[in-house]
């Protein structure tokens, strides 16, 4: 594990998936922090300033769409890239994620190499 890697905030309420993705991202050299709902995610975005957010859209308390919209309305959080994790390969889901202000999306089950490439590109600067 390295502390030097960029910090990625993983927002995922499903424990299995959250654990798995944390593990994979950590292996890939990222420092991973996690949130289980949209409200927690917004709070962590503000306090931990992650380089990127991976956000599941179906979340309790505050869903991913709402959290994205709020983040985009917030001057402090506006610039943090968000990749939506959508459960379905449906166009509507992707579009609504992008409409809510996500920069990109990945469909579950995630093609990890592809996702990794996106994360690396977005955190490259």
């Amino acid at each position: 594990m390295t502390d030097r890697g960029p910090v990625v905030l993983l927002v995922e309420d499903n424990e299995l998936n959250c654990e798995m993705l944390t593990r994979r991202l950590t292996r890939a050299g990222f420092k991973v922090i996690t949130a289980a709902d949209g409200a927690q995610a917004l709070a962590l975005m503000a306090s931990a300033r992650p380089a990127l957010v991976l956000m599941d859209m179906n979340l309790p308390v505050m869903d991913g769409w709402t959290a994205c919209r709020r983040a985009r309305e917030d001057e402090q959080l506006r610039d943090i890239p968000i990749i939506a994790l959508t459960a379905h390969a449906m166009d509507a889901d992707r579009r609504s994620a992008l409409a809510a202000g996500c920069d990109d999306y990945a469909t579950k089950p995630i093609d990890f190499p592809e996702l990794l490439a996106k994360i690396r590109r977005m955190t490259a600067s």
Partner: peptide, 18 residues
């Protein structure tokens, strides 16, 4: 619950790939 199944599938896939 389609959603829960998808999440489990995602976890299986992730660990298998690792």
């Amino acid at each position: 619950s389609h959603h829960d199944q998808m999440n489990s599938l995602a976890a299986i896939r992730g660990y298998a790939e690792m």
